[in-house]
Computed example of a mutant assay.
Amino acid sequence: MKINFANHSHLSFDLWLTLIKSNPEFKSKRNLLFKDFFDVDATIEKVNDVVRYYDVLCNNINERTGLNIDTYEIYYLILSALNVNINDIDTTKLELFYKETELLFLKYKPELLYANIPQLFKEITEQEKTINLLSNTAFIKGNTLRKILSYYELDSYFQFQIYSDEVGLSKPNNEIFQLVFNQANKIKPITKKEILHIGDNIVADYNGAINFGFDAHLLK
């Protein structure tokens, strides 16, 4: 990962496909767990298709509304589409499923997208620049993602981490970038143009940051 941050004093990073990527085994095992846990009467191929459909749909909705569809709401949409009676499933069961999912996620951990990320973060902080994380979430909550960053020993580099499920807002909403600006200004007085947001999504990351007044770097 190569980023020109010489003219910036604070860097904001996206997470998925910016710093980490999914373990190739996780999603298939998660979908099989979903089928078994909820006794879904459908093929695993059908479950895969429905999960993928609602993953993409809910992400698109979040980007367009700037709000955040809760993980459990996504579960209910998938279950309903798979002809499971959601009236028979309460949130306690969904919580139990999420715990099982988290265990699977931590077993089949996401991988760092670039091997030099720890060195890059070290270089940034040694120049007395500060860093935050800003991530939209869907199936995996911010609390779980914090554990991954801790595992890779990246968490200590972040002055703060903001996740859409924890604040009820999603990129490219100006309000979530405002949260970044507010938090950055608690660390030190800073202008919008001194903040560089880095991400892979042209709508959520690049356009969102630029429209708010930050500088942005689009990873390709």
Rank of each mutant, 00 (worst) to 15 (best):
Q127K: 15
Y98I: 05
D90T: 04
I74E: 00
Q119Y: 10
N116S: 15
E126V: 09
E102K: 15
F105V: 01
Y108W: 10
E100H: 12
T92C: 09
Y114K: 08
L79Y: 05
L113G: 00
D88P: 13
A115H: 12
N85C: 07
K122N: 12
P118F: 06
V84G: 00
I89T: 05
K122Y: 11
K129E: 02
Y75E: 00
A115M: 11
L133Y: 04
S135L: 14
N83V: 08
V84Q: 03
I117G: 01
K109L: 09
L77M: 11
L112N: 02
K129T: 03
I124A: 00
I124V: 10
Y108V: 01
Y75Q: 01
N87T: 09
I89Y: 04
K109I: 08
K93A: 04
Y114R: 10
L112I: 12
I78D: 00
Q127W: 12
E128R: 14
Y114W: 09
Q119E: 11
F105N: 00
N87L: 15
E102D: 14
P110I: 09
T91H: 15
S80V: 07
L94M: 14
L103W: 13
I78H: 01
L94F: 08
N87K: 14
A81G: 05
L82Q: 06
I89P: 08
E102N: 11
Q127P: 06
F105D: 01
L134Y: 03
T91A: 07
I78A: 00
L96F: 12
K122E: 08
F105M: 04
T125V: 08
T92H: 14
N132W: 12
T130I: 04
Y114P: 02
T91S: 11
I86D: 01
L77Q: 04
T130E: 07
K109T: 06
L120P: 06
L103A: 10
F105C: 02
E123M: 12
Q127F: 13
E126T: 14
I86M: 03
E111D: 09
N83L: 09
F97E: 04
F97Q: 05
F121T: 03
K93Q: 11
N116D: 12
